[in-house]
C-alpha cells in the first residue's frame, strides 16, 4: 500500500497539465537510499541534469567513491566505475588517459577525498588531469555512522569527538579546496552549496562550466559542494541547512577560488 502511494506521488496523474519539471533521463528511475534532506540526492540530480542538457550522456564516464554515495553508480545513468575508498581520482585519471575524448568525473566525500585519498587528490590536480572532481563536504563520515572527518569543524560533535573536535584531538579542519586552488594544474576551483534553490542553480552553472572547460582541455576542474548530513549531524533537514550557513560558511565560504585565465 505504502509502495503504491509512493509511486502515485512520484508519477502523479498529470493529464491535461503541462510538465514543467521532471527527472532527467540520465538520472535512473531508482529510489535513492539517501536520508531525507541529504545533499547527495540534490547534487546527483543536478549533475545528471547538466550531463543531459549538454547531451554528453553517451560520452561520459563517472567514478563513484566509497562513502554514502557508493551507490552513485546505481542512480547515474552513465557508464560508471566504483573506486576503492579514496582512489576515485586515480581511477578517473586512468579512464581519461585511455579515453581522452570522453567526459570523466569523480564524485567524492570529504573522508574519501581529503583524508584517505589526499595524495591522489593533490597529485591528480597537480598533474592537471583533464577531469571534473565533485567534492561533497558534509564535515562528517556519513556512511560509517558519523565519525570525525578532516573537514569537521572545531567544536563539532561527532561519534569520535563526542565532546567536540579540539585542536589537541584532531587538529585543524582541512581546507583542501584552498590547497588545491594553489596548484598550477587546476583550471577551475569553486565552492558551491545546495541548501537553497538559488544555490542549486549556481552549482548547476559551475558544473556546466566544468564540462565546457574539460572539452577545451583546460585542466582539472574542482567543484566543492558544502553539503549536509542531517542524520550524522542529528538535525532535521531544515535545521541542518540553517546550521550549515551559520557554521560551515564562515570556514568554507562559497565562491570561485580559481577561474581559467
Amino acid at each position: 500500500m505504502a509502495q503504491e502511494i509512493m509511486e502515485e506521488m512520484i508519477t502523479p496523474d498529470v493529464e491535461g497539465m503541462e510538465c514543467v519539471y521532471q527527472r532527467p533521463e540520465t538520472l535512473l528511475d531508482a529510489r535513492f537510499h539517501y536520508c531525507p534532506g541529504c545533499g547527495h540526492s540534490v547534487v546527483h540530480r543536478v549533475l545528471m541534469e547538466v550531463i543531459q542538457e549538454l547531451a554528453i550522456t553517451e560520452k561520459t564516464v563517472g567514478v563513484a567513491p566509497v562513502g554514502c554515495s557508493v551507490f552513485a553508480d546505481r542512480y547515474m545513468g552513465v557508464d560508471m566505475q566504483g573506486a576503492a575508498h579514496g582512489r576515485a581520482s586515480a581511477v578517473a585519471t586512468a579512464v581519461k588517459r585511455i579515453l581522452p575524448d570522453r567526459y570523466v568525473f569523480s564524485y567524492q566525500g570529504d573522508g574519501d577525498l581529503a583524508a584517505i585519498g589526499t595524495a591522489e587528490t593533490i597529485h591528480t590536480c597537480n598533474r592537471g588531469e583533464n577531469i571534473l572532481i565533485v567534492f561533497i563536504n558534509n564535515a562528517i563520515y556519513g556512511m560509517t555512522g558519523g565519525q570525525m572527518a578532516p573537514t569537521t569543524l572545531l567544536g563539532m560533535k561527532t561519534s569520535t569527538t563526542p565532546t567536540g573536535r579540539t585542536l589537541e584531538i584532531g587538529g585543524h579542519p582541512l581546507k583542501i579546496t584552498e590547497l588545491v586552488a594553489q596548484l598550477p594544474g587546476v583550471a577551475y576551483v569553486t565552492r558551491q552549496s545546495v541548501h537553497t534553490p538559488n544555490a542549486v542553480r549556481q552549482l548547476k552553472k559551475a558544473l556546466t562550466k566544468s564540462f565546457q572547460y574539460q572539452k577545451e582541455v583546460r585542466g582539472t576542474c574542482f567543484v566543492e559542494v558544502v553539503s549536509n548530513c542531517p542524520s550524522g549531524w542529528k538535525m532535521t533537514p531544515l535545521q541542518a541547512n540553517a546550521w550549515l550557513v551559520e557554521n560551515m560558511f564562515p570556514l568554507y565560504p562559497p565562491g570561485d577560488l580559481r577561474t581559467p585565465q
Binding site: 581511477v91 586512468a94 579512464v95 585511455i98 595524495a119 591522489e120
Partner: peptide, 21 residues
C-alpha cells in the same frame, strides 16, 4: 601511455580504471 604515479596505491587504482575502460 606511461604514467609515473604518486604511489603504488595510485598505480594499482589507475590499473583498475584503465582496465575498466
Amino acid at each position: 601511455i606511461v604514467l609515473q604515479a604518486e604511489s603504488e596505491v595510485a598505480s594499482i587504482n589507475m590499473v583498475y580504471g584503465a582496465a575498466g575502460a
